[in-house]
Amino acid sequence: MPRPHFFAPSQARLLQFVWMAVSAVLAAMTLFPLFWMVSIAFKTPAESFSPNMIPAAPTWQNFIYVLTEVPFLRYMFNSFIVSATVTVVALLFHSMAGYALARLRFPGREAIFLAIFSTLLVSLPVIIVPLFIVVKTLGMLNSYAGLIVPAIFNAFGIFLLRQYYLSLPRELEEAAVIDGAGYWRIYWSVVLPLSRPILAALTILFFLANWNSFLWPLTITADQNLWVVQVGIANFQSQYSAAWNYMMAASTIVALPMLILFVIFQRQIMESIKTSGLK
């Protein structure tokens, strides 16, 4: 039986065209600020504020300046070390916790899970003052440890991994149990390989979040050698308040790797966020 349609075919085709055009225009408007950033990064100071999108005399000078006159490479290095370390350690800890909370039976499991889950409501800004005091007491101010360790612990990752493990079939683990494997071996050689897809998605999300984080590094690093890119760039602004061409070049250098990462892994990133809603 043919389904009755609300619109006549010709109407439907027109509607679809308008629909697509609206989407495309809105999407282009959304991206405009990012294109504008790249455009200014290639402009000379004199041209910074001209309304043309394509620079009249494109130049690499701004990039060269930022990379040579400011310890920008150092900031990038710090950001990379911090983000990579946090990501690797966090994935290990979170997958361990997620596996135990999903699969192993032990007294207090539900209470522990609930306690972890409730920390999802606590965001960094509201505990920034006491967290600073805790980290200071532990002697981690102005150190890589201070940048890295507190950033590792986050309930979001544990929660997602637990959900994932709940949805995995038990049979493979049971086979390993019959073979006499211990819990660590089951986790390491059965569960971890099975979680490759979600670990890949979380790797990108965690790296992204840490590369982009600003408030915490700003708060605990006074030593310029420990600055991460976001702090460096914000400081750049107070130092060269009118040199927008330099600032946009710096911004482009910071944002571009993440945009490229996003373009490559967009499917995984968007899928993992889509499912993180409420399941």
Binding site: L31, W36, N212, F214, S251, A255, L259, F262, V263, M270
Partner: peptide, 29 residues
């Protein structure tokens, strides 16, 4: 088509807020 458009809408979210704020500040001078 829609998957490209979706990515375009999501793209700002992968840029750091510091950069986002700088770019909008520049546009609002």
């Amino acid at each position: 088509f829609n998957s490209v458009i979706r990515s375009m809408f999501f793209a700002p979210h992968v840029v750091s807020l510091v950069v986002v704020a700088l770019v909008w500040q520049l546009m609002s001078v």
